[in-house]
């Protein structure tokens, strides 16, 4: 029994079968990568996991509780956090405020009307947020506007926003897409550190094989909405089915 179980998930868009009978079993504490050519249904699968899309059939169980039918904020409150392909942050707020918001969300749930207390009186929350920023080396930038950060810093900030909620499961949607090699390596290092230190389960969708093979404990190859193979990285590399699926793709 894994922390996340995906059973027989199907999703059609009109005539297009985006996901066909997807099964997935993610073990606690592992990093599970989902790879596949463009249009294989990776993002659709992720969107089904976080409640953005509703699959037509199938079930998703997280820590024994069904996920489907819940709204994104409810799924997040269950302990599933998502990192986006392009960093999604609160760009009109300062770096510190960006981290404070998830801190409040964790403590107070999806809605609570603290209209009379001052943010500055929330000592515990402030400490928690600053410690998190320290961990991602961004404490010195805490009063900067988030919109003025570099792309790499935005990524780190978004990671901090996810981690400060102490999720059990972290979903990463192409965390290094569009990054320069140096930035990619930094991100890999950051993710490795997080994995070792916090023992967070991760599901990662990625194009860049370098990233995948540096991080993943298990890999699922998706093609045309169906899982082809699931195995440890060593066995995936030379797998004939994988080569077949990627035929014509320049990446591999």
């Amino acid at each position: 029994m894994g922390i996340l179980e995906v059973n027989g998930v199907n999703k059609r868009f009109g005539g297009l079968q985006a996901l066909g009978d997807v099964n997935l079993d993610v073990q606690e504490g592992t990093c599970h990568a989902i790879i596949g050519p463009n249009g294989a249904g990776k993002s659709t699968l992720l969107n089904c996991l976080v409640g953005k899309l509703a699959p037509d059939t199938g079930s998703v169980i997280f820590q024994g509780n069904p996920v489907l039918g819940r709204k994104p904020h409810e799924i997040n409150q269950m302990g599933i956090s998502r990192v986006f392909q392009t960093p999604e942050i609160f760009s009109d707020q300062t770096v510190l405020e960006n981290v404070l918001i998830p801190c409040f969300a964790r403590r107070d749930g999806s809605f609570r009307m603290h209209a009379y207390e001052s943010v500055n009186d929330e000592g515990d929350i402030l400490t928690q947020a600053e410690e998190m920023l320290e961990e991602v080396n961004m404490l010195s930038k805490k009063d900067m506007m988030a919109s003025s950060l570099s792309r790499g810093d935005k990524r780190r900030l978004e990671m901090a926003m996810s981690l400060v909620q102490q999720p059990q499961l972290l979903l990463l949607d192409e965390p290094t897409a569009g990054m320069a090699r140096a930035d990619t390596n930094n991100t890999i290092a950051l993710l490795k550190e997080i994995k070792e230190k916090r023992n967070i389960t991760m599901v990662i969708i990625e194009h860049d094989m370098h990233v995948v093979f540096s991080l993943a404990d298990r890999i699922t190859v998706l093609a045309q909405g169906t899982p082809l193979v699931e195995d440890i990285p060593e066995n995936i590399k030379g797998h004939p089915k994988v080569r077949e699926a990627y035929l014509g793709e320049a990446q591999v």
Binding site: V50, H73, E88, F90, I101, P102, G109, V119, E122, Q165
Partner: peptide
């Protein structure tokens, strides 16, 4: 207040808001 912070977060990025559990 934290409430005011949340309201500003809505203006800033409502999508992020729901993926932050709010």
């Amino acid at each position: 207040s934290p409430f005011g912070l949340m309201l500003r977060a809505i203006k800033s990025n409502q999508n992020r808001m729901s993926y932050t559990g709010l």
